[in-house]
Design a protein around this nucleic acid. Structure first.
Length: 492
RNA sequence: CGGGGCGUAGCGUAGUCCGGUAUCGCGCCACGUUUGGGACGUGGAGGCCGUCAGUUCGAAUCUGGCCGCCCCGACCA
């Protein structure tokens, strides 16, 4: 073994890092907190983008692109939003460098080139977008405005982790404008459903849909909806959010429309986003000590064919059969790679594709050739099966579906096993320390109690689940009456 | 910002206490034998030891400054 991954049991965080780096997903860059997304990692992100983009378009949205920079005066217009992001902004103050007279070959910021107004590198785009929408919206006929953008944003976090929290990250942000409050809320919920659908049916990651408490709300939102996933180590990960922004941005940027009665009113807004953080969720949901595990629907390569041969003649014979198998699979929309590189031996390739998470491997040797079979190995549970070449395409198509649903099932079972109820604060703390995972508990509904619990246990309210069961109970912290359990966890 | 660690070949490292021009593994190149779970042999290439200054006949090694990165924590719409 030339590439060793730290076992999860030994150090989960190290395991995660090893997977990201060794599976060639991403690397630390020369810029602190910023990563290089390598081709294999980027290919998975592209699959995610394609699927999501189609879902957005199917729900009536179109793509556009807005500037990276936001003039400070616009940025500060919506007060709560500005305040929420102020402490993690990168700011452009100058537009030119010049040679350092003191130090040959070095450059300094040209003090003559100071900007009159600083530019904020977007941490999110509400400000620049709503400032633009003012010019686009006059009448109810201009509504709804349903726009998405794929972009990069910068948030100057103190501590970063590959994919989970990087200074610069890639994401999509939807920004919509509506004539009524009801319609905007409907949109907010609709996009949450899209995210949940994507997480569960593409990423094979089960999620809890819910509403954030005021404490955890997006800065500038009236309500934040979220999907929360549970990672293998029992920590929660916020996988996507959809915000009902009320009329906050419309008022801050004076975006009004004339309704059918000819009266002017501020429009209602939503915004919603998912980011490259989803890559982290994907990794921490399915991967194991042998490396990455990619659900078939998001795998850039779903099947790899590895020939096992002796000499050029042998390879030639196998290549012919492999080409037939490949063509048959491609006809069924399966992405296949035939790895006939002579520079590595089969065993090396097996290990490599396992590490990189390719869902299915077909091994094809002379022995198979005479039997009319191949050896099919699946990545999710590492089992192998001998399959007749005649039946290969149906077998593989079914197998890919089976792997996709098995991954989801496995993740769901794990989440259920790691979901607990706590009725007292002692019990609550005990579960967090000994079992981790999701903890459903009664809460008195106040921010103060939420804060106290966070201070003492590091657990936060991940969400108040949608369609939550109503039941009488008492707050685990204050003993005050409560009507429902909310979802607590320690989170990434 | 606090705590910890690290900077030596493409990667991972030994050497640093006790100063004498750098060890080993992987990878790379060539040739040959190999190929059903990370092959083997032989030969070869590759390093101003993060950076700047100081001490010294001599610095990877001692002293001081600086820079960078990683990990833990604080922080995290």
């Amino acid at each position: 073994m030339s590439k060793v991954i730290t076992p999860q049991e030994e150090d989960y965080s190290k395991w995660y890092n090893d997977i990201v780096v060794e599976a060639d997903l991403a690397d630390h860059s020369a810029v602190r907190g910023c990563m290089v997304i390598k081709p294999h990692g980027y290919a998975i992100w592209e699959k995610m983008q394609q699927a999501l983009d189609k879902m957005f378009k199917d729900t009536g949205h179109v793509n556009a692109y807005f500037p990276l920079f936001i003039p400070k005066s616009l940025f500060e217009a919506e007060e709560k939003n500005a305040e929420g992001f102020a402490k993690e902004c990168a700011i452009v103050t100058h537009y030119r460098l010049k040679s350092d007279p003191q130090n040959k070959g070095k450059l300094i910021v040209d003090p003559e080139a100071k900007l009159d107004e600083e530019l904020i590198v977007r941490p999110t785009s509400e400000a620049i977008i709503w400032n633009t929408y003012r010019g686009w919206i006059e009448s109810y006929r201009d509504l709804p405005l349903l726009i998405n953008q794929w972009a990069n944003v910068v948030r100057w976090e103190m501590r970063t982790r590959l994919f989970l929290r990087t200074t610069e990250f890639l994401w999509q942000e939807g920004h919509t404008a509506h004539a009524t409050r009801e319609e905007a809320i409907e949109e907010t919920k609709k996009m949450l459903e899209v995210y949940a659908d994507f997480a569960e049916n593409w990423m094979a990651v089960p999620v809890i849909k819910g509403v954030k408490t005021p404490n955890e709300r997006f800065a500038g939102a009236d309500d934040t909806y979220t999907i929360e996933a549970l990672m293998q180590d029992g920590k929660a990960l916020q996988a996507g959010t959809s915000h009902f922004l009320g009329q906050n941005f419309a008022k801050a940027f004076d975006v009004k429309f004339a309704n059918k009665e000819g009266k002017l009113d501020h429009v209602w807004a939503t915004s919603w986003g998912v980011s490259t953080r989803l890559m982290g969720a994907l990794i921490m949901s399915h991967s194991d000590n042998n490396g990455l595990v990619i659900p078939p629907k998001l795998a850039p390569t779903q099947v790899v064919i590895v020939p096992i041969y002796k000499g050029d003649e042998g390879l030639k014979k196998l290549a012919e059969v492999a080409a037939v198998i490949k063509a048959k699979l491609q006809q069924r929309n399966v992405t296949v790679k035939f790895d006939d590189r002579d520079s590595h031996r089969p065993g090396w390739k097996f290990a490599e594709y396992e590490l990189k998470g390719i869902p299915v491997r077909i091994a094809l040797g002379e022995r198979d050739l005479s039997n009319g079979t191949v050896e099919v190995a699946r990545r999710d549970n590492l089992t192998k099966e001998v399959v007749k070449i005649d039946e290969i395409e149906t077998y593989i198509v079914n197998l890919l579906e089976e792997i996709q649903s098995n991954l989801f099932k496995r993740a769901l079972e794990r989440r259920e096993q790691m979901s607990h109820q706590a009725n007292t604060f002692d019990e609550f703390k005990k579960i967090l320390d000994e079992k981790a995972g999701f903890v459903y508990a009664h809460w008195d509904g106040t921010s103060e109690t939420e804060e106290k619990i966070k201070e003492e246990t590091k657990a936060t309210i991940r969400c108040i689940p949608l369609n939550n069961k109503q039941e009488q109970g008492t707050c685990i912290y204050t003993g005050k009456p409560s009507t429902q359990r909310v979802l607590f966890a320690r989170a990434y």
